[in-house]
């Protein structure tokens, strides 16, 4: 399991989706959570950076766990997700401060994500409000976005959750580039106007 954390963490950092110490990940194993250590560097995780704690109650290990553990626990309690990835993806964060929902225009994200909702909360990290909002939203969408903070995604394995976040970042980059160019784009999809219904 450590190898999965290490490899996905390296990929997240290399892709520029976090700063040196940003982001967090976890995996549910039975009634336990494996979660990245608070202050760990996802780009260079060691086995000591993976903290095991309870799914539904605190124990002493919580002192070492990611600040976002309350959010991770809430997500596992309300969904069938087995893995969670949270990043501070720059293009995605910029887009979250422009739109109330991300409706991708590129083919890949149209297929895979369709639409990603954006939520605005004053306290963006580790609060019960974040836990409630994000976990409830993930019951309907596999990837959701906190305005100014970044996306949370669930999957059956870390790789899957990472895919949604990577795909969203590319989609937001394309949207931001569109705005930069100011060009009128040609629609290539059938039902292009319907993706906001998702």
């Amino acid at each position: 399991m450590y190898e999965q954390f290490r490899d996905i963490g390296q990929d997240i950092y290399t892709a520029g989706l976090i700063s040196s110490h940003g982001g967090n990940m976890s995996v549910r194993v039975g009634d336990r959570i494996l979660i990245t250590r608070r202050g760990s560097m996802l780009g260079r995780l060691t086995e000591r950076d993976i903290i095991e704690t309870s799914l539904d109650h605190d124990d002493s290990e919580v002192a070492l766990a990611s600040t976002e553990i309350v959010v991770h626990r809430a997500i596992y309690a309300r969904t069938n997700g087995l893995a969670i990835v949270h990043t501070h993806s720059p293009h995605t964060i910029l887009r979250s401060m422009i739109d109330d929902e991300i409706v991708p225009i590129d083919s890949e994200a149209s297929y895979l994500l369709h639409k990603v909702p954006v939520y605005s909360l004053p306290q963006t990290a580790g609060s019960s409000a974040v836990a409630d909002t994000v976990s409830e939203a993930l019951r309907e969408y596999k990837c959701v976005l906190l305005r100014g903070h970044g996306p949370f995604a669930i999957g059956t394995v870390l790789e899957e959750a990472f895919q949604w976040i990577s795909c969203l970042e590319m989609a937001c980059k394309i949207l931001n580039l569109r705005d930069q160019t100011g060009a009128t784009l040609k629609e290539y999809r059938e039902h292009g106007e319907d993706y906001a219904k998702w």
């Binding site: 039975g30 059956t156 899957e160």
Partner: peptide, 25 residues
């Protein structure tokens, strides 16, 4: 899907850790 076809993602078919969660889903 998980252990052969890679849907949604391919995992090590010989591993036992984490299989309970995947099977339950």
């Amino acid at each position: 899907g998980f252990e052969v076809l890679g849907t949604p993602k391919l995992v090590d078919p010989a591993a036992t850790g984490g299989k309970a969660g995947l099977l339950i889903v």
